[in-house]
Design a protein around this nucleic acid. Sequence first.
DNA 1: TGTACATCAGTGAACGCGCGTTCACTGATGTAC
DNA 2: TGTACATCAGTGAACGCGCGTTCACTGATGTAC
Lengths: 202, 202
Amino acid sequence: MRYRGAVSEQGDETKQRVMDAAIAVFSKGGWAGFTIHAVAKKSRVSLGSLYHHFGSIDGIAAAAWSRSLTRLLEALAKACANKRSARASVEALVLGYLDFTERHRAEALFIHASSWASFMPEHAERLGGEKRRAFMPLLVRFGGYVEAGELVSASPAMLEMLLIGPAAETARRWLSDERAVDLAEARRCLPAATWRAVRLDS
Amino acid sequence: MRYRGAVSEQGDETKQRVMDAAIAVFSKGGWAGFTIHAVAKKSRVSLGSLYHHFGSIDGIAAAAWSRSLTRLLEALAKACANKRSARASVEALVLGYLDFTERHRAEALFIHASSWASFMPEHAERLGGEKRRAFMPLLVRFGGYVEAGELVSASPAMLEMLLIGPAAETARRWLSDERAVDLAEARRCLPAATWRAVRLDS
DNA sequence: TGTACATCAGTGAACGCGCGTTCACTGATGTAC
DNA sequence: TGTACATCAGTGAACGCGCGTTCACTGATGTAC
């Protein structure tokens, strides 16, 4: 009954290996080096097999982007889980973002670098939905704090800008040049600063 | 004595027109549509002339990026000029960032989308220097507020993350989807929130 | 003044490489009956 | 049990288009003397 199931284990393992290779290829050579031939070579999967699983080079990039973003959002949700106060949640979120960036450099890089990549428009609707789904737990948590009067009253989107803005900007800077910003200083400085920006009842 | 001068007026006008065309081409079709043939067609400048002035397609992109970033930084410096207090400067900076994004959408888009473009590595040293020069006035101003004990003590880079992080993230979101974030709400919300994050003496 | 020369802006047909993609194929595994 | 068939994963040589780039050229403007 292999082919009645959603995805065969063999095929899935291949897909994972291809996404890993895609992220590694980009990490090494940027968009200029990101070709389907390079991904095929790195992953040791044939060109035909790549097209069998992903349909196109953009399909590979979209899949790698989607998996990376899901992992980031899951890491953030996990970092906030079990936090009792709004402040602890906010600070854990910021630290979680910085930690993911440093611990999974290549994936974080791929997330940020894909913002205006050519694959985004054609996969926008599907990718947008996946992002929204993975983002739900965080939305619920911080939305709850807003309703409880612990965070400034703002739309979910605006709250997100305040919460991840400084951390995301720091990550971007660090990803493009590790010497440009000190992550250790960011860990000391950003959680408290972000909290000051979003808390209610000063 | 035309050719003894730094740049002829005729040549400079052509270069400006090419940069305008490059930004317009990207704004319309993203990186997928950004080819030297498209820029030649849009600017009505021949391929040979493009190579005469810019050397390569990456040279065109780098020049357009540099000009756009300089304009942004000049707009921010102008927005802060004449502000008397640290708070007024911070809020003007944030509003200035949002205003530039909305008023010069295509240029703002080009700035953000170029972060990991293929032309960045090879032009990094020169572009980095130009960015630093245009950034100086802001560095001096806000560095002065830090020394005066009006803003939190942090490195210039970290202060920059706090000052432009939320506004930059908002801009990015709006540039990729205008419905995703409300710029009017951002104008109401972000200046005060950014001020809360960076002020000293709560 | 005229002649020769230098420099720069600009032209566009042509080239050739690299890229994404195709396609006819094999092999493995499972179903139908 | 055997035979025929279906589905999926995987292969890699080959193709052809589009892209960045080249190059021999013209024209305009200014200098040298």
